[in-house]
Amino acid sequence: MIFQGDAKGPIFGFSGSGLDAKFQRTLIAEGWPRPKYDFTQNPIDPEMVALGRKLFYDVRLSSDGRVSCGGCHSSYTAFAHVDHPRSHGVLDREGRRNAPALMNLAWQSEFMWDGAIKHLDLQSLSPLTHRTEMNLSIDSILVFLKNDPGYQRAFGQREISIPNMLKAFAQFELILISRGSRYDSMKRKQVVFNDQEHRGYQLFQKNCGVCHSEPLFSKPGTFASNGLQMDSLLHDKGRAEISGKLEDEFLFKVPSLRNVEATYPYMHDGRMKTLTEVVKYYSDRTLLLPKALGGGQHTIALNSKERVDMVAFLMTLTDPGFLQNPSFQEPR
């Protein structure tokens, strides 16, 4: 069963427009904002989801036939890349950043660490064609899909085209909804946090919530600096490389902390290996908030005991049902 969630009736004001009813219900939960994705342009369809899943795990969609999207975005780690600080693609070419986790993408409108992509439907073009990732041309992808009997079947009555391929990718990614953590159970009053988790939660709200806001534990559309020094080798200037603005230098997208226990290593370049290391980094730090978050300074101060409590809370954001959902794994 892919679809699960709280049933509260139709949203968006377009009930009956083709959006799969079960999926529509999964988009609704108390305290959650409305999704940003416009489902009227790409209504969820189980066949398209299945096609997207097939594409996502197909290593043939790379120039050396060894790299799929799933190679860097493992379902067991919330679709993050955990084996190296920076993700690598065809011919072991190494990129500049750690592949981010994929979940709750319907609530986001900007993708990649620098927000280069502004629509989920078009996101997959980037890794498919990037020289260090999958290194294919759009034309060659289309030729491959048209000539492959498996894809001829998977596309069914639909035209085998790049727009349909992109929409299928998006559909598979849209169903990756994580909302089944211990934290979520606590919010639904199904469990009660223990004392340590509760203390950690309070510390989190006070110190981290300004950027990693509930319930998504991120701030979609916001780019911020966490004070990390620029990597002397990579010279990654983050958001500024897209916007061209000086004030955007070293700003990166605020990632979601859901399933953060599973998405190591941390930071845009994977320079930190453990949650303890991350929390310690932040525990005595004054950050400059971007204008989008009100500007000004934000000081975090945590002693060693509080750091342990904080990590205990972060562990409550793990969603085992999401990490182990067979519907998200490579099709057998």
Binding site: A116, H119, L122, S126, H130, I138, I162, P163, L166
Partner: peptide, 23 residues
């Protein structure tokens, strides 16, 4: 239109006019 998602016809990325690395 640029941020409205995948286009078709003249706006199909296959036409070679889409910056794949950014929107």
């Amino acid at each position: 239109i640029q941020v409205a998602g995948v286009g078709t016809g003249a706006l199909d990325p296959l036409r070679g006019m889409y910056w794949t690395w950014q929107t």
